[in-house]
C-alpha cells in the first residue's frame, strides 16, 4: 500500500500554486488536509503525476464572519470552525454537522474547502454548502470566478472546476437571525460517511407561520440535493442506489424520515429563538 511515484511541489504563495497547476493541467492534484487524497494515493486509486501541496500557503489558513457570511479559506481546518463558538451559535446546522465528520483527528487535518472540492455526496460540508447557498471562489491563470454551490457539484467526486483551477475560498451566507436550522444524519457508526443526511433551515413570521424553508439531502444521489421542503416530496427528489451498507429502498424511506426530522427540528429551534 505505497503510492505510485509522483512529483511533489510545495508552493509558498497562491500565485505560484496557480502557475504550477496551470502547467500541470490534469496531471496535478492539490493536497490540503489529505484525509481523502492520501488513502487514495496509497491504494493507487489516485495516481497523479504531481502533487501540489498547499500547506505552506499559510495565507489561505483563515476563516472569519463577514456580517452574515462565514468566509473560509482553502487551508482552514474543520476543527477551526468547530472551535469557533460564535459561528456555532449563529448556525445550528453547522454546529450539528461538524461533530459528525469523522473523528477529531480527521477534523484536525481535514479542510472545509478540501471536503467541498473532493465532492463526496455523503460528506457534510457539501450538504451544508447546498443548504446555505454557499459560493465557491475559484482561481486559475484565467482569473477568478464565483460558482454557486448548486452549480459546483456535478457528480460523484466531480465538480465544475476546470483543469488548473483551485477553490481558494468558500462563502457560506448564514441563516438570518431568528431562523432555525438543523443537520441530522444516519451513519452505520459514529463518524462514518452517512447512509443519508438531511439539513434544513426554517424561517418564521412574527405570527409563527412558516415564511421560508430550505432542505438539502446528502448521500442519496451522486451530488447533494436541494430538495422540496416537504418530506414526501423530498423523497421523490432523490435517486438512491444499492450499496454494501443499505439497499436503495431503505435509503428512499430514510430520505423521507430524515427530511421530516430535520425540518421539524429546524422549526422547533426557530420557535424557540422567536420566544
Amino acid at each position: 500500500m505505497k503510492p505510485a511515484p509522483f512529483e511533489y511541489h510545495a508552493p509558498t504563495d497562491l500565485g505560484e500554486a496557480v502557475r504550477l497547476l496551470a502547467a500541470l493541467g490534469e496531471h496535478g492534484r492539490l493536497l490540503a488536509g489529505g484525509q481523502s487524497l492520501m488513502p487514495m494515493l496509497n491504494l493507487r486509486l489516485a495516481r497523479p503525476e504531481a502533487i501540489v501541496d498547499l500547506n505552506r500557503i499559510t495565507a489561505l489558513a483563515y476563516h472569519r464572519l463577514d456580517d452574515e457570511t462565514l468566509v473560509i479559506g482553502a487551508l482552514c481546518r474543520q476543527r477551526e470552525i468547530e472551535r469557533d463558538q460564535e459561528v456555532l451559535a449563529r448556525c445550528a446546522a453547522i454546529a450539528d454537522a461538524i461533530p459528525l465528520i469523522g473523528h477529531i483527528g480527521i477534523r484536525n487535518r481535514g479542510t472545509v474547502v478540501g471536503s467541498l472540492a473532493h465532492a463526496d455526496p455523503s460528506a457534510e460540508w457539501p450538504v451544508l454548502a447546498v443548504l446555505l447557498d454557499a459560493t465557491l471562489e475559484v482561481e486559475g491563470v484565467a482569473g477568478r470566478r464565483s460558482i454557486a454551490a448548486q452549480d459546483f457539484f456535478k457528480g460523484l467526486f466531480a465538480t465544475d472546476l476546470r483543469p488548473g483551477e483551485l477553490v481558494v475560498e468558500a462563502r457560506f451566507p448564514l441563516p438570518p437571525a431568528g431562523a432555525g436550522s438543523a443537520f441530522i444524519e444516519v451513519a452505520r457508526r459514529h463518524g462514518d460517511f452517512a447512509l443519508g443526511a438531511a439539513a434544513a433551515v426554517v424561517e418564521l413570521a412574527a405570527d409563527g407561520s412558516v415564511t421560508a424553508a430550505r432542505l438539502a439531502l446528502g448521500g442519496f444521489d451522486s451530488v447533494p440535493v436541494r430538495a422540496t421542503p416537504d418530506p414526501a416530496a423530498a423523497a421523490a427528489d432523490v435517486h438512491p442506489v444499492d450499496d454494501v451498507h443499505a439497499p436503495a429502498g431503505y435509503r428512499r424511506k430514510l430520505a423521507e424520515t430524515l427530511a421530516r426530522r430535520a425540518l421539524h427540528l429546524a422549526e422547533q429551534r426557530a420557535r424557540k429563538a422567536g420566544r
Binding site: 491504494l43 457508526r189 459514529h190 454494501v244
Partner: peptide
C-alpha cells in the same frame, strides 16, 4: 451490528478497506 465480509455474485470482495468493513470504535 457492523462487520461483514461481502463477496458479490462474481466472487469479488466488496469490503476491502475499513471504509466498508466496519469495526466498532470507542464511540460504539
Amino acid at each position: 451490528l457492523y462487520e461483514h465480509v461481502i463477496y458479490d455474485e462474481s466472487g469479488q470482495p466488496r469490503a476491502t478497506t475499513f471504509l466498508d468493513y466496519l469495526l466498532p470504535t470507542s464511540a460504539e
